[in-house]
Design a protein around this nucleic acid. Structure first.
Length: 528
RNA sequence: GGGUCUAUGGCGCAGCCAGGUAGCGCACCGGACUUUUAAUCCGGUUGUCGAGGGUCCGAAUCCCUCUAGACCCGCCA
């Protein structure tokens, strides 16, 4: 292993960028600017998997720059994609727009120029929040400006050859019959219903026929329109099986990652790029989908979508970057409950980076340091930040619901975790607090109190209002219970239920002091 | 039909992509603290790394075969 030379920063990202460069060199392509691309869906709510595609592509861009090359990330929004299904939480009124390109559908929330831009913006906002820089491009502009017209022309001229190859490679026969180009019907604005059967090469026009089509489980009515569409002017789009290839060639893309769900499309597109468009396909890496904790694919309809925005309520941007950069292989089940360990892992990496934790294995040390640098987008801080255990913050946040930041901070000072209050820790407390509120809600239990219990609570409440020494509280509680014919065990349980909503908790004497005796006295009095 | 991933102590997982004494959490056992429960702290037990073969001085890690499970594709994007 000592012979193995460290590539770049020693992570999979470096290895990938290195392979990419080797391949480009062997092809003999110009390396002045190496473009990497990430495709963004614009028809559904963008979840963390979509974000991952772009974040990882950006990682490759960073690695290329680190090797001394100029690189650029293109974030391409496929907003000519047709709306197939109304996402959960979106108005039913979208029904009338089914099958239309998402960039031609009005934004149901009225905040963006179209449905498509609304969706894209959510993803772009996520990218901005984690610090990813990109050049944004849209399908609708790309087609309107005719940027793909040469590629479309070549593809349509070779459509029967392509149709046969698609059948051979992935067993899909439809393109042996239809052209891999969907015009937007000039009459009803729908995509997919317009099936094109013939390409008039000289005029650069396809002839189509708008008929009923099955999209997902829905039947979409065609309007019966017969028309012609000019591939460089009229709206329409290539089928996915060939569209990437056209884009790669037109934009000169050298790298694009893809999820395993589109593996077949990539296989076909690679062939189309190489053999039809005479553009050596970009280097790829395949990644697994993020699944939810039950092993189900994350999808809008199941309501298990994890968006960057939601994640960032609980974890900082670095936790997202760490999740996405730590590895790319392997299927992964993901949930918000992963945030605490990612937060802790980041701190650990930082300690390794700054030499506070010793790592014997040289290769692993390099890799950990490299990972830390990528999580900081290759711009790591000069000195270590102050670490506070995120789980501890969650525990403290569960206890303190009011004046949380202030009280949790005070506890941290008491514990000696911090010497002085820190503004960045305040932010962490806020995140941990959100997490505690969202995921640690205790079931509200009806507390059954008999007369003797009520009497005991009354005495305790009074005692707490006057009591001076915190050390005595535990004892006082015990005494009150005993002298009022209440089982201490029961009495403690009742107190936990009143204060925490659970039947168990931390040692209650000091705990009451932490919350504030007077406050607890008041809370208890409300139950009498 | 095609493809991908996963398999590691009782449970949940990390480590695998660049081979070098098998780790973490929970659970469990013991101790400390506590005039109840719980919590907390300290210490400890637990594994022929799915099966079989190969490469290597050395394999959880790389290669091949097999078994089981999950997921994706075979509408569309």
């Amino acid at each position: 292993m000592s012979e193995a030379e460290t590539i770049g920063k020693g992570t999979w990202i470096d290895k990938l960028a290195f392979e990419l460069l080797e391949r480009e060199k062997s092809i003999g392509r110009n390396l002045e600017l190496i473009r990497v691309e990430s495709g963004l869906g614009a028809s559904g709510v963008p979840h963390i998997g979509s974000l991952g595609d772009a974040v990882r592509a950006y990682g490759v861009k960073l690695a290329l720059e680190n090797f001394g090359y100029k690189s650029e990330l293109i974030a391409y929004s496929d907003d000519l994609d047709g709306l197939r299904k109304i996402p959960e939480g979106f108005p039913e009124s979208l029904q009338e727009h089914i099958a239309k390109p998402v960039s031609l559908i009005p934004d149901p929330f009225g905040c963006h120029e179209s449905y498509g831009m609304h969706m894209s913006s959510i993803l772009l906002d996520g990218l901005d929040k984690v610090g990813i820089k990109y050049e944004f491009r849209r399908a609708i502009d790309t087609y309107k400006q005719g940027l793909l017209k040469d590629q479309i022309h070549t593809i349509l001229q070779n459509s029967s050859k392509i149709g046969d190859k698609i059948s051979e490679l992935v067993g899909q026969d439809k393109f042996q019959k239809y052209l891999p180009y969907f015009p937007v019907c000039a009459n009803c604005s729908k995509l997919y219903t317009a099936e094109s059967t013939e390409y008039l090469s000289d005029e650069k026009k396809v002839i189509y026929n708008c008929h009923d089509a099955e999209i997902g489980s829905n039947m979409v009515k065609g309007c019966g329109h017969h028309g012609e569409a000019n591939i460089s002017k009229d709206l329409g789009k290539l089928a996915w099986k060939v569209e990437f290839a056209a884009r790669w060639a037109a934009f000169d893309i050298r790298f694009e990652a893809y999820g395993k769900d589109i593996m077949d499309s990539v296989k076909v597109n690679d062939w189309v790029a190489d053999e039809i468009l005479n553009y050596p396909h970009p280097h790829h890496v395949k990644y697994e989908m993020f699944l939810d904790k039950g092993g189900k694919k994350i999808s809008k309809s199941l309501g298990n979508v994890i968006t960057a925005q939601k994640w960032l309520e609980f974890g900082d941007p670095k936790s997202i970057l760490l999740l996405l950069y730590k590895r790319i292989t392997g299927a992964r089940e993901l949930g918000f409950e992963d945030i605490p360990s990612l937060m802790a892992e980041y701190n650990e990496l930082e300690d390794i980076y700054f030499g506070k934790i010793k790592v014997d294995n040289q290769a692993k040390l390099t890799k950990s340091k490299g990972l830390y640098e990528y999580v900081n987008l290759l711009n790591p801080p000069k000195e270590s930040s102050i670490h506070v255990n995120y789980r501890l913050l969650i525990e403290l946040s569960k206890i303190f619901k009011e004046d949380r930041t202030q009280r949790v901070m005070k506890k941290l000072l008491d514990y000696g975790v911090l010497k002085n209050p820190q503004p960045e820790i305040e932010k962490m407390i806020e995140l941990a607090g959100n997490y505690a509120d969202e995921f640690d809600q205790q079931e509200k239990i009806e507390i059954g109190l008999d007369d003797s219990a009520k009497k005991a609570l009354g005495l305790l409440s009074t005692a707490l209002d006057a009591q001076e020494e915190p050390e005595d509280i535990q004892n006082t509680i015990y005494q009150i219970a005993k002298s009022n014919d209440v089982q201490p065990r029961e009495f403690f349980k009742i107190l936990y239920q009143i204060i925490l909503g659970t039947t168990r908790g931390p040692k209650i004497g000091p705990f009451i002091t932490d919350i504030g005796r007077k406050k607890v006295a008041k809370t208890i009095s409300e139950y009498i």
